[in-house]
Design a protein around this nucleic acid. Structure first.
Lengths: 154, 154
DNA sequence: TATTGTTATACTCTATAACTATA
DNA sequence: TATAGTTATAGAGTATAACAATA
């Protein structure tokens, strides 16, 4: 009988978090992809669609559609770019600021409740472990990218 | 300046894992949703499409499409159900068994490499912490469901 | 000539609803 | 009457390619 793997634990939590988010968004005009756009604008301030596409690693076309939906829903507006008439600056409306303020608070509350479930003695080790995993994961992916590049150029 | 939250760490890892999977599947006939079907059949054996829909919490219609794609790709077949002529039993082909055997091995290898990145003294605490988080998450979602049911029946 | 954003098109995942064959 | 699966239709997220306006 195989023991439970670390990766299984991580994927289980990832899946539950994602399903919970999807359920919370059901029936609203929001979604995970749209919320990702709002997070970037909330944290980094008004941004061009190119900047959003780069930051979120999706195509500019995809950003157009997401911003269309968010604009229709009233959470962002396209303001003119002060120096480049081709570009727009996507910025939060009042409703967008209100939404993101509330969402950030709920995010912190959920985080606190989850940390609260972990034994006090285990908390620091858990955070160190998660950070180490994130770093290693990034390394492994970078290595895989190099191998793929090598294969492509050979 | 807000400290980094536990939830941010979990969501970062979840996002990276998901992107890495999507990248690994690019250009193949596989995807996360199709692989989820294969995992269930691999672990639980031949299953009806109803059983798969229930297990994966998607609609039977969705399972039809996923099994169509997996059948075309040669990883599963629809065998007749021995006792119910309406139903099919979805089972792995030889290629499906080979794929899942290899995938399970790679899964275990990645898991070992990630655990290897965690300091030896932190490993047990990390696993306990993740399990505690999964349990608490399930509790919170169950509570939210009850509240929603109350609201619906009121 | 290069960049920003959009229109056109297509594919995957997902859902609901109506239908067929069988139980 | 209920269940297993499919056809029909729709919407979100994603991609590539071609194009317009501007740099």
């Amino acid at each position: 009988m195989p023991e439970r793997l670390l990766l299984d634990r991580l994927l289980l939590i990832a899946d539950v978090l994602q399903r919970d988010m999807a359920r919370a968004f059901a029936g609203t005009e929001l979604s995970g992809a749209r919320m990702a756009v709002l997070w970037v604008v909330h944290h980094s301030g008004p941004a061009t669609q190119q900047a959003l596409a780069t930051e979120l690693d999706v195509t500019p076309r995809n950003i157009s559609a997401l911003v269309d939906a968010l604009e229709t829903a009233g959470f962002v507006r396209r303001a003119p770019h002060p120096a480049d008439r081709r570009a727009h600056l996507v910025e939060l409306t009042g409703a967008g600021v209100e939404l993101m303020t509330r969402t950030a608070r709920e995010h912190a509350e959920l985080s606190a409740r989850l940390l609260d479930a972990v034994a006090g003695d285990d908390r620091a080790a858990l955070e160190r472990g998660l950070d180490a995993i994130a770093v290693r994961l990034a390394q492994l992916i970078a290595e895989a990218d190099e191998s793929a590049d090598d294969a492509a150029s050979r």
